[in-house]
């Protein structure tokens, strides 16, 4: 009341005030600049450093003065049998991983959603979220201990059930993929239910009532009401994960790779680490990184487009 009468008598007051407000808010921009600057310096600018892939890189000369050699290192990369195997391994690993680990949280959240007891539901949720916060190195630690030849739990169970000798699970490349998949399901299924449970809670309860009056049992309700309700979430997440099919999780793979199986199960991340950082062969490692980045980018762009088409949700 008071301010409005003020305006009537003093027309200049309002614009002055809003002007001051804009000035004040300009300060807010300053708040976000440190984060922007750091992200530019350490996330965006370094990408240009991958120019080493086209250079005979000499660390004393730096990025700017090292001589350019064109696509030499890319040609070298695609002639190298190990590098080709690495690319194939990366694709196989992430595809198989996606195939097996993607349905797990969906099944888990459907099971959780049907539960009548809230307390049991909460307990399951809390406990299954926990592994997400456990470091891969710890996972690798207990897997190595449990599969050990000397007193490993899994080997004891195996001998008890099937007899025979102890197996060196971690030193046998046939067990590499299963170990990656099982540990991934163990670590992330619970956590990944969050998004599906959120989608499930958005399903209109009236739909269930309508289905029930039409004579649908709980199974049919799950099939015809619940599943369609979370289908958009499933599609988006599937597309997002597909967009990253050229990537694997370094922390996970690096922890389960060892000398015995390294030549057979190596993936791009571990290859770049070994060639680039440990052996200091920067150009070839950068070429491998660029190859991966290029295809990742295309895939993400395509899947994002598809997601926008099917679900109206896209990142840009």
């Amino acid at each position: 009341m008071l301010t409005s009468t003020n305006h009537a008598f003093c027309p200049g007051a309002k614009p002055k005030q809003s002007n001051r407000r804009v000035k004040k808010r300009m300060w807010l921009l300053v708040y976000v600049t440190p984060a922007i600057i750091l992200t530019i310096i350490f996330s965006y600018l370094p990408m240009f450093g991958n120019i080493t892939a086209f250079q005979d890189f000499d660390i004393t000369k730096g990025f700017l003065k090292s001589p350019f050699v064109g696509f030499m290192y890319f040609k070298k990369l695609f002639k190298d049998r190990h590098a080709l195997l690495v690319i194939k391994n990366t694709l196989v690993l992430s595809t198989v991983n996606l195939l097996f680990t993607f349905p797990a949280p969906i099944i888990l959240s459907l099971l959780l959603n049907e539960l009548k007891s809230d307390r049991f539901k909460k307990t399951v949720q809390t406990i299954t979220y926990m592994p997400h916060f456990i470091s891969w190195v710890i996972v690798a630690g207990f897997v190595k201990q449990m599969t050990a030849l000397d007193g490993g739990l899994i080997n004891s169970i195996k001998i008890f059930l099937f007899g025979g000798e102890s197996v060196m699970f971690l030193a046998d490349e046939r067990f590499f993929l299963p170990i990656i998949i099982i540990t991934n399901i163990w670590k992330e299924s619970g956590w990944n239910t969050i998004i599906f449970l959120a989608a499930l809670s958005g399903v209109d309860p009236q739909l269930y009532e309508a289905a029930a009056t039409d004579g649908a049992g709980r199974l049919k309700q799950a099939l015809h009401v619940t599943l369609p309700g979370i289908l958009p979430a499933i599609i988006i997440l599937l597309l997002l994960r597909t967009g990253r099919i050229f990537e694997t999780n370094f922390d996970q793979v690096y922890n389960f790779i060892n000398i015995h199986i390294q030549d057979k199960v190596d993936v791009l991340e571990t290859y770049v680490y070994r060639e680039g950082i440990q052996k200091a062969k920067y150009p070839i490692a950068a070429a491998a990184g660029l190859f991966q980045g290029f295809f990742s980018f295309i895939l993400i762009a395509v899947t994002n487009k598809l997601s926008g088409k099917f679900t109206d949700i896209s990142i840009w």
């Binding site: 991958n50 370094f250 991340e269 770049v272 950082i277 490692a285 990184g289 990742s296």
Partner: peptide, 9 residues
């Protein structure tokens, strides 16, 4: 950005 693209630079 894939971490691999950043580690070397």
């Amino acid at each position: 950005i894939p971490s691999v693209l950043l580690t070397i630079p």
